[in-house]
Design a protein around this nucleic acid. Structure first.
Length: 249
DNA sequence: TATAATGTTTGAAC
DNA sequence: AGTTCAAACATTAT
């Protein structure tokens, strides 16, 4: 799950802020009983993290590659695939609904204000996101591939492999291009596109039409020139890259 | 049906 | 001793 999806999740779960947890279940190894009776003070996302803030500590959720969640509030389904019967990693039951989270990594953050531990100037979904800072940081990685740098959560918190591939296609750049081979103006444009595409991703995701808007990710033919799309693992991260050798340089 | 995949952490190996 | 890299985790769509 990429940043925009987490941003959407936090938004969708806002009705639970102010509610208190009645019961918990799930196969997490965390001491989940600790959550019983606690009031949710805040729910927010940072990059690919979803955070539930309680009075004296917070719960951080990361959905990794396969994670999902579903929630019901006042008998209204908020999101998720309710058909399957699975054991949640963690389920939180509230007076007016519940949140079930699957295949996720859970961590307690011992802080009464976990939000302040995060730097939103690197969070692509935050209004505080700082594009100038991003350019400066990227320029410190002169010998690295742009595909790797885009996935660096300490630089672009929330960018995942879909955003990486789509943004590079939009900007006609190869994932294996080294930072020192990209002009400043191209870099600026790329970083603007990261922000713009992330917001677009969020809108499409909300409307359940994200997949049909993929231009290069998991596609076979370039939508611009119809040539065959190259599919290869690139960079030190060895994540799959999709690109058009004709349109991206 | 086997494979690949919206990802990160850990600890072994060098 | 610092860096690198494979394994682990775990599920679903193609």
């Amino acid at each position: 799950m990429e940043g925009p999806s987490l941003f959407l999740a936090a938004e969708q779960l806002q009705p639970f802020v102010g509610e208190s947890i009645i019961t918990v279940k799930g196969n997490t190894k965390l001491e989940k009983e600790r959550l019983i009776g606690l009031k949710v003070e805040d729910i927010f996302s940072f990059g690919k993290h979803l955070v539930f803030q309680f009075k004296s500590f917070a719960l951080r959720v990361h959905f990794l590659l396969f994670g999902t969640f579903e929630a019901t509030f006042r008998n209204e389904k908020i999101t998720g695939d309710y058909e399957k019967t699975r054991v949640p990693r963690l389920q939180l039951d509230f007076p007016e609904g519940n949140i079930a989270m699957y295949n996720c990594s859970l961590v307690f953050i011992e802080s009464s204000n976990a939000k302040e531990l995060y730097d939103n100037s690197i969070n692509i979904m935050s209004p505080s996101w700082d594009s100038k800072k991003a350019i400066k940081t990227v320029q410190t990685f002169q010998d690295e591939e742009i595909g790797d740098v885009l996935l660096d959560q300490a630089v672009f918190a929330g960018v995942g492999n879909i955003i990486k591939n789509e943004v590079l296609f939009l900007e006609h750049l190869l994932p294996e291009k080294k930072i020192d081979a990209i002009s400043l103006s191209k870099l600026r444009k790329l970083i603007d596109t990261v922000k713009r595409y992330s917001l677009q991703f969020y809108e499409w995701r909300k409307q359940f039409v994200l997949r049909k808007h993929f231009q290069i990710y998991r596609k076979r033919v370039c939508p611009r020139c119809q040539s065959e799309i190259i599919r290869v693992k690139t960079g030190k991260r060895k994540r799959m890259s999709y690109y058009c050798a004709h349109c991206q340089k």
